[in-house]
Nucleic acid binder design. Structure first.
Ligand code: ZN
Length: 278
DNA sequence: TTGTTTTGACCGCAT
DNA sequence: TATGCGGTCAAAACA
């Protein structure tokens, strides 16, 4: 039967894309979407800029949104694939903003710090109430400044100096993800994909939202990994880190990779966080 | 054989 | 109260 309330039945078939998962190509996908409807991997600034030119975006893509509405804030990221993206994760903590700290200070810490798995996660730190604005949006100009600063920091940090190198690297965040759902949201131009960390007992979930052109528009991480990063690929082929959870290897991986470095930062806020960057 | 993706359906919360 | 909506489940298909 169809869904009594939430889904299809409420509306005649075809009447709307409501709740209808986008035409995924029918069943049994594969680790390699191959000719995927979304060429996420190949999305570059160009297509995105085209959208901008068309005025598609309601909001500047370079905007950094720190959404901390949810009690357990989630990490939100909006990667749009360009060299700049990778070179500078425009993650900016409201804390940092308020305190006037370097927006990437925590990020830099994260670079030097061990992965996001924190052995004894103090519950208190989890539940810090975000006494912060729901989100913070920075302008393009600010973003540029961040890029410059970030570049400077990246170059001097030494640990992760070759940030641009990350761009060349295959997608990987060290964690394995399994897609467990996809949903076409009502007002969203893009379907939203839901991923879970495949590690046993790990509650972490990842929500990937794309734009109509296949660009990853937003990535939301929820929860905290309760395990160290599994560095070895699960499988040689489809199950590899890049394909798992990274419906598009480069996109997701890159996003996740930056994310990964960001995530320790989020310790400050909790187990979830939102970030968005170009 | 194992693990992932796809996708329709189900469930619970918010309005 | 009823409905809308988002998140999750689970079977089937696939690599
Ligand atoms: Zn995990």
């Amino acid at each position: 039967m169809a869904d009594r309330r939430g889904d299809g039945t409420r509306q005649p078939p075809f009447s709307s894309a409501q709740d209808r998962v986008f035409d995924g190509g029918g069943g049994g996908g594969s680790g390699v979407p191959g000719p995927s409807p979304y060429g996420g991997e190949n999305i570059d600034q160009g297509s995105y800029m085209a959208l901008l030119a068309a005025g598609v975006r309601p909001q500047p893509p370079w905007a950094v949104v720190e959404d901390v509405t949810a009690p357990p804030p989630a990490i939100h990221m909006t990667p749009h694939f360009s060299m700049t993206n990778y070179a500078s994760p425009s993650y900016q903590h409201p804390d940092s903003l308020a305190a006037g700290l370097h927006p990437y200070s925590s990020y830099l810490q994260a670079v030097n710090a061990p992965p996001q798995w924190l052995p004894p996660p103090t519950p208190s730190s989890y539940l810090q109430p975000p006494l912060l604005p729901n989100f913070v949006v920075i302008t393009e100009q600010q973003h540029h400044q961040q890029l410059l600063r970030d570049a400077a920091f990246g170059g001097s940090s030494g640990t992760h100096a070759a940030v641009p190198a990350t761009i060349e690297q295959p997608a990987k965040d060290g964690y394995n993800w399994r897609k467990y759902g996809q949903k076409q949201l009502k007002d969203a131009e893009s379907p939203r994909s839901y991923y879970k960390c495949t590690s046993d007992g790990c509650p972490v979930k990842k929500i990937v939202e794309r734009s109509s052109d296949g660009c990853i528009k937003e990535i939301t991480y929820r929860g905290r990994h309760n395990h160290p990063r599994p560095m070895e690929p699960r499988r040689g082929g489809a199950g590899a880190v890049s394909s798992s959870g990274g419906d598009n290897a480069v996109a997701d991986g890159a996003a996740a990779e930056v994310m990964d470095e960001d995530e320790p930062t989020d310790d400050d806020d909790g187990e979830e966080g939102h970030d968005r960057w170009v």
